[in-house]
Amino acid sequence: MSDKEIAVETQGLTKIYGKGNTEVIAMLDVNLTVRRGEVVALLGPSGSGKSTLLTAVGLINPPTKGKVMINGILVLDGPDVFLNLTTFRRNHIGFVFQKSNLIPFLSARENVQVALELNGLTGRTARKKAMSLLDYLGMSDRGDNFPAMLSGGQQQRVAVARALANRPSLILADEPTAALDSVRGRQVMELFSKVAHEQNGAVIVVTHDHRALDVFDLIYEMEDGKIRKKED
């Protein structure tokens, strides 16, 4: 496989909070490679470093040490930043969270549209594309509804549509099914699988939900800041 097919790669990723007596190692020497089209689950107890890894890969919380490469481009080397992170994040990464995290004053369609407009699409084109994304996720009939009028599962679908808006090579999801029942939780996980395979993107999902692990291509476990691949 060529480097181009690697969506994200981390080398020796380490994150240390505090100094001296208050030093806490949140993540230690994490090496992770996720290719396009793969859906990866990240398991582990609370405080194991899952979210730290996710925020480092999501370019929100730079590591103390180690490299983050996305699409073969070195973006972070420790605290050193090589690109405009805001722009890079907008073009290459999509986020889905535990709670839907939709903007409450925007309708479902506008929540997707705003991500497109931020990437330079004009109003009408962005609107059309937002509707087609909602349609793809079976939400076209709820485009004018505000988040408060949608169920948890519907909100997560809109969040996924927003994450997909700019055709990112990487989608990061932090406990996306935590607020959903098992049926809807599974639907969301299957949605990630569909997105990864159909859109040729990589998806990393932090989850505690062991009921839908069969949808993932790879499963990693984290404990005490270290990562290891979970074998079947």
Binding site: R89, R90, L118
Partner: peptide, 14 residues
């Protein structure tokens, strides 16, 4: 909401 907008790539000027 501001944090969310920043996360999805909204520049400060927006």
């Amino acid at each position: 909401e501001i944090a969310l907008l920043k996360l999805i790539g909204a520049p400060n000027r927006v």
